[in-house]
Design a protein around this nucleic acid. Sequence first.
DNA 1: GTTGCTGTCTTGAACGATTCCAGTGTGGGG
DNA 2: CCCCACACTGGAATCGTTCAAGACAGCAAC
Lengths: 157, 157
Amino acid sequence: MEAFDVTALRGRGLRATRPRLAVLATLRRRPHASAEEVVREVRESLDAVSVQAVYDVLNALALSGLVRRVDPTGARAARYELDVGDNHHHLVCRGCGLIVDVPCAVGHAVCLQPALDHGFALAESEVTYWGLCSRCQTEATGPVRVTASTALPEGPA
Amino acid sequence: MEAFDVTALRGRGLRATRPRLAVLATLRRRPHASAEEVVREVRESLDAVSVQAVYDVLNALALSGLVRRVDPTGARAARYELDVGDNHHHLVCRGCGLIVDVPCAVGHAVCLQPALDHGFALAESEVTYWGLCSRCQTEATGPVRVTASTALPEGPA
DNA sequence: GTTGCTGTCTTGAACGATTCCAGTGTGGGG
DNA sequence: CCCCACACTGGAATCGTTCAAGACAGCAAC
């Protein structure tokens, strides 16, 4: 695991430093961690790591494609996950902010091709499903954080 | 237009105030405006409107479903648009941040249903297409703001 | 038209996530 | 093993957004 990360980093021309390896290990353990969570977790294995170092590491890893940055509309802080290259999508709970991975719904490129491309060179498409997780459904008292448009009754999306 | 907005506001139990009407007019003229742009534009028709008033208005309108808040991963500031209820998607330029509306690509509910719902009660799905707009494709010198994962070669999304 | 209540706007300050800067250190190719 | 470019540290700044308290103004009732 360690060795794997070391080669992954070197393969992209990045040095294999302790903070970087710790960040990768953290994201493997906890996908969708916020920068703050990463800092907390990394500090449990390494004595002193600055917040800025973590941001720097996350940016460097995101730039090199090892890490994917996700920030759902309305979330306070960005989340990070290892970029495993499967281009999965996310299911986000409007109640508690829980993020769950879901594989591509359809298995073909239909989601990648918008009806009109307006002259864009398309690189990627990203799908976010919004809803309420099972726990927030039962606890109607959960913190409700309505951020964007309200519920959609049915139909095409 | 004015009258239409007035009834729309009152219909949701909101007062029809000048700042609110001005914000709605601004968003009709410029979809995907940031809060700052809205402030600037609104101040051209109204003498004095505070930044906080605009944020308050945008939040109130978003909560009532008249306005949709969009913030693409990596964007500094959130964007706002009138919620016309057609649940369209967005095409975002990685170069300059330009946002363009696209109708739902497929016209059926395939995008709304992830393969696994993990017990979630789904409310909505949101698709963001990433790429380079035609201008940024020609100007290779444009500001490149890589934020999340890097380009995806092909295949399912 | 006037009055009064309540929801809105204003001013001013705070907050949290992220970034910038300058200096120190350390990984790893030579 | 040595050196230096790349990484990390600490501190401060920035930027979008929100909070709080008080002044103001829609609009419903009279």
